[in-house]
């Protein structure tokens, strides 16, 4: 089961290493990790996606809490959460296929960032699944490179 942990940490040197080290030490693979500052410049938010059973996620959450620089951890409930990821895809495309690729991008409400004679670079924002879907459709054209940010997420509603 995938979990999205939203972790508020003090914006101090070494915090990322401590958090990442803890996951690997306790035998977890991090699927994706996104870090950025919050509305408070002293505090950063890490959004960590991990694949885990219920029990071990509890243990790793408790261990995370023990890190002095970790302020708050929320195990986001998928149903009450909006999660997004941003990806940049460089796709092979020449004059013959350009229109088709651009059409696909349009369907997905993706932006065209760059066009060269042989490639098109597309920016897409959306759920993990949406990005995967576009990638699948573009595969026959030849995907040269994909860069993904990793998931970020926020709870719905007023909280």
């Amino acid at each position: 089961m995938k979990h999205i942990l939203s972790v508020l940490v003090e914006n101090k040197p070494g915090v990322l290493a401590r958090v990442a080290g803890l996951f690997s030490r306790r035998g977890f693979n991090i699927d994706s990790l996104a870090v950025g500052i919050t509305e408070n410049p002293d505090v950063s938010r890490m959004t960590i996606t991990v694949d885990a059973e219920e029990h071990p996620i509890e243990q790793v959450t408790k261990q995370l809490h023990k890190l002095i620089n970790v302020i708050k951890i929320t195990d986001l409930d998928a149903e009450k959460t909006v999660a997004r990821e941003l990806a940049l895809l460089k796709v092979k495309s020449d004059a013959k296929t350009r229109a088709e690729v651009m059409q696909l991008a349009k369907i997905f409400r993706a932006q065209i960032l760059d066009v060269s004679r042989k490639t098109i670079t597309i920016e897409i924002t959306g759920t993990f699944e949406k990005i995967d879907a576009l990638e699948q459709l573009l595969q026959p054209h030849g995907v040269v490179e994909i860069v993904r940010t990793g998931r970020i997420a926020i709870e719905r509603g007023e909280k």
């Binding site: 070494g14 290493a17 080290g21 023990k66 002095i68």
Partner: peptide, 16 residues
């Protein structure tokens, strides 16, 4: 040494 001891300390500091 802060890296080496990371898993075996409660906390550590490198004074900058």
């Amino acid at each position: 040494i802060t890296g080496i001891t990371e898993p075996i300390v409660k906390h550590s500091y490198l004074i900058k």
